[in-house]
Design a binder for these strands. Structure first.
Length: 291
DNA sequence: AACGTACGCAACCGCGGTAGG
DNA sequence: ACCTACCGCGGTTGCGTACGT
């Protein structure tokens, strides 16, 4: 009954990926596209489980990924989206082209959280910390704390100079929920929050109509869109003027350290390098190559 | 220079929803 | 209808490295 197990846990390698493994996985995906992750390890000659392969590809190897720190604009967008969506990292990531949920989650936990705390803003509720203190209902601000508790022990009273309310300035004042995120709210009034959010037509439209126009609108200005193997759209350049393919190509050049030309990526990217990394040309090139 | 601590990030774990058999 | 694997997601862990003493 049921399906075959995805992998026989025995003999499955764990831990950091080697360049050789990356090479195999990239080669396989570029050749065959993303299909059945269960079959990928076997077909690609990897001693990994499909889950691990998917993770490695989506979080690290995908050519449409941006590398490096989030820009100010991206960070602001993350804060705004987190105020609306809570810890729905995949939803947030869907609105930041070239960023993964894991990357955003990590950046949130290591940078943005602290930044907000320093500004006197509760990263969970996106409300001023002192407000909660006054109400005597101060929640554990680290309620969603990671295992690295020592990382989150910034003093709550720190720096109240900037009370510009990042989240609110990013447009959450049109939420009659007082910008409490729907997730991770330990106050127990989640249903009320949800109701208020659901009653906000414009917000709901923004949030749930496909992959909302929040970013799409930004992209649509200059955005070049091509299709990936699965027919999904990849944005070559977004409207925020953020780097994309130039950086990716730089990164991909680094791949040559382990022989990118050996496993077939050159057919995909070399022309672009030679053509001065024109993003428009890259879009054309990719769309034809991939299709 | 050596050591201890803090930090950042890649990867793993476990759960819930979905779908194949 | 039920069982079980697959998939995707959010939470957590652990390693490598930067930084401070």
């Amino acid at each position: 009954m049921g399906r075959q197990p995805c992998c026989d846990k025995l003999g499955v390698k764990k831990g950091p990926w080697t360049a050789e493994e990356d090479k195999k996985l990239i080669n396989f995906i570029l050749t065959n596209g993303q299909c059945c992750w269960r079959a990928v390890p076997k077909l690609a000659g990897l001693r990994r489980c499909g889950k691990s392969c998917r993770l490695r590809w989506t979080n690290y190897l995908r050519p449409d990924l941006k590398r490096g720190l989030l820009t100010e604009a991206e960070e602001q967008l993350v804060i705004d989206l987190h105020a609306r969506l809570g810890n729905r990292w995949s939803k947030i990531a869907a609105r930041l082209p070239g960023r993964t949920d894991n990357e955003i989650k990590n950046h949130w936990n290591t940078h943005i959280k602290k930044k907000l705390l320093r500004m006197g803003i509760d990263p969970v509720t996106h409300e001023p910390l002192h407000k909660e203190d006054q109400l005597g209902c101060s929640k554990e601000t680290n309620s969603s704390s990671s295992s690295h508790d020592h990382k989150n022990n910034l003093p709550d009273h720190q720096s109240t100079n900037d009370h510009s309310m990042v989240a609110n300035s990013a447009g959450s004042e049109d939420m009659n929920s007082s910008s409490s995120p729907p997730e991770n709210s330990s106050s127990g009034d989640e249903s009320t929050l949800l109701d208020s959010i659901c009653n906000d037509e414009s917000l709901m439209k923004n949030l749930w109509v496909d992959e909302t126009p929040l970013i799409d609108a930004l992209w649509s200005n200059n955005g070049q869109v091509v299709a990936d193997h699965g027919g999904n759209e990849i944005n070559i350049e977004n409207g925020m003027g953020l780097q994309t393919w130039e950086d990716n190509c730089a990164w991909l050049l680094d791949c040559q350290d382990f022989g990118v030309h050996d496993f077939g990526m050159d057919y995909c990217f070399n022309d672009v390098e030679l053509n001065g990394l024109s993003t428009l040309e890259m879009g054309d090139k990719l769309s034809t190559t991939i299709n």
